Amino acid sequence: MIENDSAVRLATPDDLPAIADTLAAAFHDYPWMRWTVAADGHTNRVRCLQLYFTERIGLPYGRVWVAESPGAPDGIAAVAVWTTPATRVPAELFTAPELDAYYGDRAAHAVAAEQAVAPYRPSAPSWFLATIGVRPEHQGRGLGAAVLRPGLAEADAEGSAAYLETADERNVRFYAHHGFEVTGEADVPDGGPHAWCMTRRPAPTG
């Protein structure tokens, strides 16, 4: 059940600092980030990456939902960032020079990790859950599910599949509860994390 006094809404550019802070906190110890982002200044690097992808990709080319909670800094406790089949993200946004600076000495590992999961990504247009995170002190209160559901509802309304990747086995069970199935698995090279690629078929509407 979602915690009391919480509300989910579409994000605006004014939310970007709080979104970046929320996702940086949520992904502080996430295996994928620990493998692909340099250790020095790690939290700030993760914050910069999450800000970049939300500001440059999620807001203009997809959907970003936030869950508000009065107990969270700046009021935001959870975030979900999607890209959608309706828009095409310019390829150059994924290779911008500042990204290498954010990844630091792990930039090559970040490229290798992306290449490891790329074969399992859907060829048909799909809703892509780029990132979802809940502030650690607000986890276990239903906010992850609450901020996930609007994207799934829109995908269903369009008759579109949804896709995501996770490097935490605990997340596999969470996403399975919401209709996702594992459609591929990959080991990131050189001792990197294991990744699960998951797809959700559109649910009947009406």
Rank of each mutant, 00 (worst) to 15 (best):
I2V: 14
L10H: 07
A11S: 07
T12C: 03
T12S: 15
T12K: 13
D14A: 15
A18L: 07
A20T: 12
L23F: 07
L23S: 05
A24W: 06
A25Q: 13
H28F: 13
Y30H: 15
M33E: 14
W35P: 00
T36Q: 03
T36R: 09
H42P: 00
R56V: 06
G58R: 08
G58S: 10
G62Y: 04
W65H: 14
V66A: 10
A67T: 13
S69V: 01
G71E: 07
A72Y: 04
A78F: 12
A86E: 10
A86R: 14
T87D: 04
E92L: 02
P97E: 06
D100M: 03
Y102G: 01
G104K: 10
D105L: 06
A112P: 01
A113P: 04
A113L: 05
A116S: 14
V117F: 01
P122A: 09
P122V: 04
A124G: 02
A130D: 12
I132H: 04
E137A: 14
H138P: 02
G140I: 07
G142Q: 08
P150R: 11
E154W: 05
E154T: 12
E154A: 14
A157G: 13
S160K: 14
S160E: 11
A167N: 13
Y175N: 01
G184C: 09
P189I: 08
H194Q: 13
P202Y: 10
